[in-house]
């Protein structure tokens, strides 16, 4: 696999096909955990980490267990179990070895299990026939795209609180409209590609 191929996967995952703004994966934490900038950063980093690891492990599980024994139809069940176990392990590991990061991430860590971006990246890796390295790159850069989106969004939303808007739009609806406008600006990246 050439470097340019990997670069174009990375560019696609971060900007052109951003997980949130063009694929709608991971919207729940994106909308739920973006009220404050610092928690948004924590959530973004945690998701990036889990997405990278989950891509690697689900690829291995798929290649060496499911495909080998002809069990591809069990993908959804196997992947969600792998992800749930992985998140649980990371939680225990962080608690023992990096308590400061653990407390910073707090409740967001267990919530990652139900983040559709994580299961989504595992399934998309299989669908696009990526090899191991491509899967890991796609997972990590997809997570970085999520981080970028949630940090930008949280920064806008912090200012939104002080804005004067119609009563019925307060809170969630105006956040969705904001996200829509951000998705519009991310459309500007479409057509961007790496020559190679």
């Amino acid at each position: 696999m050439s470097i340019t191929g990997l670069l174009s996967i990375a560019l696609g995952a971060i900007l052109v096909n951003n997980f949130i703004f063009s694929q709608f994966l991971g919207c729940c934490p994106f909308l739920g955990v973006s009220k404050k900038l610092d928690t948004a950063v924590g959530m973004g980093i945690a998701v990036t980490f889990v997405m990278g690891l989950a891509s690697a492990i689900t690829w291995i599980v798929n290649e060496f267990i499911l495909v080998k024994f002809g069990l591809e139809f069990m993908q959804t069940v196997a992947f969600i179990l792998v992800i749930a176990a992985l998140v649980q392990f990371i939680e225990m590991f962080l608690q023992k070895s990096m308590p400061s990061l653990y407390t910073a991430l707090g409740i967001y860590l267990p919530l990652i299990t139900t983040n559709c971006a994580v299961l989504g990246v595992a399934l998309l890796n299989i669908q696009s026939n990526y090899n191991f390295i491509e899967s890991v790159v796609y997972g990590i850069t997809g997570g970085l795209g999520f981080l970028l989106a949630i940090v930008l969004f949280a920064a806008v939303r912090e200012r939104n609180v002080f804005a004067d808007c119609p009563k019925c739009f307060e809170g969630f609806p105006i956040a969705l409209i904001t996200a829509g406008l951000m998705a519009l600006s991310f459309m500007g990246f479409s057509g961007l590609s790496v020559w190679g």
Binding site: F21, P173, I174, A175, A179, G180, M187
Partner: peptide, 12 residues
């Protein structure tokens, strides 16, 4: 995708 965000926002 933009339309999805905006239409849902207006509905809510």
């Amino acid at each position: 995708p933009v339309g999805g965000f905006i239409v849902l926002g207006v509905l809510i």
